[in-house]
Amino acid sequence: MPDRTPAPGGATAVLLLLADGRFPAGGHAHSGGAEAAVRAGRIRDQDDLAAFLTGRLHTTGLTAAALAAAATAAATDPDPDRLDDLDRAADARTPSPALRATSRRLGRQLLRAARAAWPHPALDRLADRHPRGAHHPVVLGTTAHAAGLTPAQAASLAAYESVNGPATACVRLLGLDPYRVAAVLARLAPELDAVTAEAVRAAEQGDLPAASAPLLDILAEQHSTWKVRLFAS
């Protein structure tokens, strides 16, 4: 007999809900640096996009995934210090002020949706301690805990979001063939899982990665000064 037992607490469906681009947490207005890279002529086709996404996944994607996994574990602790430490760790790993502001803004937007969907004291505490918004991976990890997900699931969400947003943005900005972009994302799937596993391992060992990509920081700062832009980041 095949095992038809669903994951406990509907965790699989919750994971799908959080990963859905239609979940109202503000992601649709952010390109993850893709808008600036397109304007700079650095992304012109799906090959450039694939390289951009690979670079992003293995740098800020890995760092965010590890922070999210660590936050899921830390959210079990009623003492908020651990989450605050992770928020400071995220600050130090985000040297670009534009990206720090983006991360806190998206954190605040996710927290709004999470508190409506999965009300939980850990989310309330986070909102009270960070009225201007905690970093997005910290909120994502806390949300995962509130929704009954594991650190690994939080990490996979962060890794997925690090590539999904810019891919969608490039469909809109460049008119790329959406099927080819879907194929690019599909081919990244094994790397997404590998990065997730690496992030979870690092979070468990308490050795958070700090992987970064130089152009992402530089492009984010340039983008933040534009008067005319379509995406918030």
Partner: peptide, 12 residues
């Protein structure tokens, strides 16, 4: 050996 090290997110 570093993933996409010369790509449009890193060294470009």
């Amino acid at each position: 050996g570093a993933p996409a090290w010369d790509g449009p997110a890193s060294l470009g």
